[in-house]
């Protein structure tokens, strides 16, 4: 898919096209999923340069909305194995380079 002849254009195109949030894995109910996704997008756009703050914002908002002990990981590359409460996990990509993992486990 990536053609080596036009790497620059490809990259620009990629950045433009791949800005939408993309849910990789979730087991949340519909309503909760939409809300969480929007929250993640808002946080990542607000703190575009500071993933830590974005994660903090997401965590605190989720704690308020859905009860405590949410955990948020935002990064460009990481591996994880987590235990989460069923129906309380969202793993999504955003902006073409960010991965956000939100889960609840108290």
């Amino acid at each position: 898919m990536a053609e080596p002849t036009e790497p620059k254009k490809e990259e620009a195109d990629y950045k433009r096209v791949h800005s939408f949030p993309l849910i990789r894995h979730t087991d949340m109910p519909e309503e909760m999923r939409v809300e969480t996704m929007e929250l993640c997008v808002t946080a990542c756009e607000k703190f575009a340069t500071n993933n830590e703050n974005a994660a903090k914002m997401i965590k605190e908002t989720m704690d308020k909305k859905f009860g405590s002990s949410w955990h948020v990981v935002i990064g460009e590359g990481f591996g994880f194995e987590i235990t989460h409460e069923v129906k309380n996990l969202l793993y999504m990509f955003f902006g073409g380079s960010l991965a956000v993992c939100v889960w609840k486990c108290s």
Binding site: L22, H25, G77, E85, V86, F93, C101
Partner: peptide, 24 residues
């Protein structure tokens, strides 16, 4: 206790890229 499940994944740039491409 509320039911729990395990989930594991690895994130890096090419995985994200691939997934975006597939979605597109």
């Amino acid at each position: 206790p509320p039911p729990r499940a395990n989930f594991s994944a690895t994130t890096n740039q090419w995985e994200i890229y691939d997934y975006y491409i597939v979605e597109l």
